[in-house]
Amino acid sequence: MRIKSQKDFFSGLMFVMVGAGFAAGATQYSLGSGAKMGPGYFPLVLGVLLAIIGIAVTFTSLVVETEDGDKVGKFAWKPLFFIISANLVFGACIGGLPMIGLKPLGLIVGIYLLTYIASHAGDEHKFKEVAVLATILALLSYVAFIVLLKLQFPVWPAYFTA
């Protein structure tokens, strides 16, 4: 069979591999039953569903004809770098880096840094729009995680508290 859409073919393979990986990892936990689910039940079901979706996408890429073959373009290094960096910085803001003496900067500072760094992944960067987005995300995250879910992690930098 000839690949008729490279993008769909490789994304389908990626779905299959990630889904199979999650399903295999979930078998290390007790599964339980549908009525009384164990910690491995949900990841197993999601992994299997993702693998099935991947098989369907891969099959479609071999059957459905596309105009130009949907060639896979060059690798987008800039967005990859900024998105991964933004997530790493956010994680360091929430948990701190005790090995180098950095205390947690908190949820609010983390969201502002995450939004600002991730905004550089695109082609254009407008500081005012990024600031508005970060403010909305910080407010909604505070309400959702701290007020409603009552999660216990730092909201403000540890340097501000005694």
Score class of each variant (00 low, 15 high):
residue 141 S to K: 10
residue 117 I to W: 04
residue 146 I to L: 05
residue 91 G to E: 06
residue 20 A to W: 06
residue 57 V to A: 07
residue 94 I to F: 02
residue 30 S to F: 10
residue 108 I to P: 04
residue 147 V to G: 08
residue 103 K to M: 11
residue 64 V to T: 14
residue 22 F to M: 15
residue 59 F to R: 11
residue 83 I to Q: 03
residue 117 I to D: 01
residue 52 I to F: 12
residue 25 G to H: 07
residue 49 L to F: 13
residue 136 I to M: 15
residue 19 G to D: 06
residue 86 A to L: 06
residue 123 D to C: 05
residue 84 I to W: 07
residue 91 G to V: 04
residue 21 G to V: 07
residue 56 A to S: 11
residue 111 I to Q: 02
residue 66 T to V: 07
residue 6 Q to W: 10
residue 102 L to I: 13
residue 139 L to T: 12
residue 83 I to Y: 04
residue 100 I to E: 09
residue 19 G to V: 02
residue 12 G to L: 05
residue 142 Y to A: 01
residue 84 I to S: 15
residue 67 E to G: 10
residue 158 A to V: 09
residue 95 G to V: 00
residue 155 V to K: 02
residue 18 V to H: 03
residue 8 D to Q: 09
residue 34 G to A: 12
residue 126 K to T: 08
residue 63 V to L: 15
residue 29 Y to E: 13
residue 25 G to L: 09
residue 144 A to N: 10
residue 60 T to V: 09
residue 8 D to F: 02
residue 14 M to S: 14
residue 29 Y to D: 09
residue 144 A to C: 13
residue 10 F to W: 14
residue 78 K to V: 10
residue 138 A to H: 01
residue 37 M to A: 09
residue 136 I to Q: 10
residue 139 L to A: 15
residue 67 E to A: 14
residue 105 L to R: 07
residue 102 L to F: 13
residue 7 K to C: 00
residue 156 W to Q: 08
residue 141 S to D: 05
residue 52 I to W: 00
residue 12 G to K: 05
residue 45 V to G: 06
residue 19 G to S: 05
residue 27 T to E: 11
residue 101 G to E: 12
residue 81 F to P: 06
residue 16 V to E: 12
residue 156 W to M: 13
residue 26 A to N: 05
residue 68 D to N: 14
residue 148 L to G: 03
residue 123 D to S: 13
residue 77 W to N: 06
residue 35 A to S: 13
residue 13 L to S: 09
residue 159 Y to E: 11
residue 73 G to P: 11
residue 102 L to T: 06
residue 83 I to P: 01
residue 100 I to L: 15
residue 18 V to N: 07
residue 126 K to Y: 11
residue 110 G to N: 05
residue 101 G to Q: 12
residue 4 K to C: 09
residue 112 Y to C: 05
residue 134 A to P: 00
residue 119 S to N: 10
residue 17 M to C: 14
residue 47 G to S: 07
residue 8 D to S: 11
residue 142 Y to V: 02
residue 50 L to V: 13
residue 50 L to S: 10
residue 76 A to K: 11
residue 116 Y to E: 12
residue 144 A to I: 11
residue 89 V to H: 02
residue 94 I to D: 04
residue 145 F to S: 02
residue 65 E to T: 09
residue 9 F to Y: 08
residue 59 F to M: 13
residue 110 G to P: 06
residue 96 G to F: 05
residue 157 P to V: 01
residue 80 L to W: 07
residue 2 R to A: 08
residue 89 V to L: 07
residue 62 L to E: 05
residue 59 F to G: 14
residue 135 T to Y: 00
residue 41 Y to M: 04
residue 110 G to F: 01
residue 116 Y to A: 13
residue 69 G to W: 03
residue 93 C to T: 08
residue 45 V to S: 06
residue 115 T to S: 14
